[in-house]
Design a protein around this nucleic acid. Structure first.
Ligand SMILES: [Mn+2]
Ligand SMILES: [Mn+2]
Ligand SMILES: [Zn+2]
Ligand SMILES: [Zn+2]
Lengths: 159, 159
DNA sequence: AAGCTTTTGCAAATGGTTTGCAGTGGGTGG
DNA sequence: CCACCCACTGCAAACCATTTGCAAAAGCTT
């Protein structure tokens, strides 16, 4: 499980047409708000609070309520994933389906920086739990928390 | 990681005097509401919603707001632990400090039954992440979800 | 371009949690 | 044993995230 920095505007983004195509395939309308939202999420690979996501949009692009409704819709069709850091509401991130499907995060409790961790190794644990408990379709939700290098030095973190 | 059923009134409970002693040690007052709350939690080893916990108390024993304030106080002194199942608010469970300190749960998504899992095996993963990322004091939050044996048969779960 | 349907914005409702404040009651010292 | 004081509690109201109702606006299809 190697940490991997996921700052904005680094790697190859998903193309917007690729995303809207998925909407069309589900016969969902390609509206202004939805394009604005997807455009914003493309450039911000981290799990975003609804409030943060809304703040990224240009004034008047999309109502807060529409962001909520869009997350529900996009989640249902598998384009976004809900992530919970346990504070201040649900977060959402684009599903990039480039192989790095299921993954977890390492969050700094001081400045809230986020690193993405790849290679989850709990899948075999899930199988073991299924066998031992009789439960089926076992999944898991896992996040790591700690203090990032920057916040260790500067005892004045930037929350 | 072996599942272990933790239904109510099975194993050895913590004694109430043991719990109130901890309050006294911290020079916190041993009040009616606090005793009622601890008494209820002793008998319910699962992570409880504030609402559920309040419902367990006898009418007039303790105000809902006081349950909230007690959880904050008890959590601060390490007597209870906050657990998030990602739906319907925070849950709390007594810290029994019988060695089974840190642990995780397996929750049925249909009927919400809970099994406690012992023997977390992520502690060495935390060390590895610290080394690779430079983060310090790394902890984690992990829960498993699935469909329990009962709900698999009866396609009419009891949510 | 017209029509049908989905989607949006705004306002208000909801549900969980916190806060302000005045009154109560544990615990301690007299 | 009593009285005093501060921690603690109840009640109401504020707060914050999320959902819902409804009429107007905007996609998509024909
Ligand atoms: Mn991610
Ligand atoms: Mn537990
Ligand atoms: Zn995983
Ligand atoms: Zn663990």
């Amino acid at each position: 499980m190697k940490p991997r920095s996921t700052g904005c505007c680094h790697g190859s983004h998903v193309e917007l047409p690729t995303l809207t195509a998925k909407l069309r395939k589900e016969s969902l309308k390609i509206t202004g708000p939805r394009q604005a939202i997807l455009e914003a999420m493309r450039h911000h690979p981290h799990p975003l609070l609804i409030k943060e996501l809304h703040a990224l949009l240009a004034e008047g692009d999309c109502d807060l309520v529409t962001v909520y409704r869009s997350m529900k819709t996009l989640q249902k069709m598998g384009m976004v994933r809900r992530v919970e850091f346990g504070k201040g509401g649900s977060r959402f991130e684009l599903v990039t389906d480039e192989g790095r499907e299921h993954h977890h995060h390492l969050v700094c409790e001081a400045c809230h920086a986020v690193m993405q961790l790849d290679d989850c190794l709990l899948l075999e644990v899930e199988r073991r739990i299924e066998k031992a408990s009789g439960f089926r379709s076992v999944t898991h939700r896992l996040e790591f928390f700690g203090i990032c290098p920057a916040c260790q030095k500067s005892s004045v973190p930037k929350p």
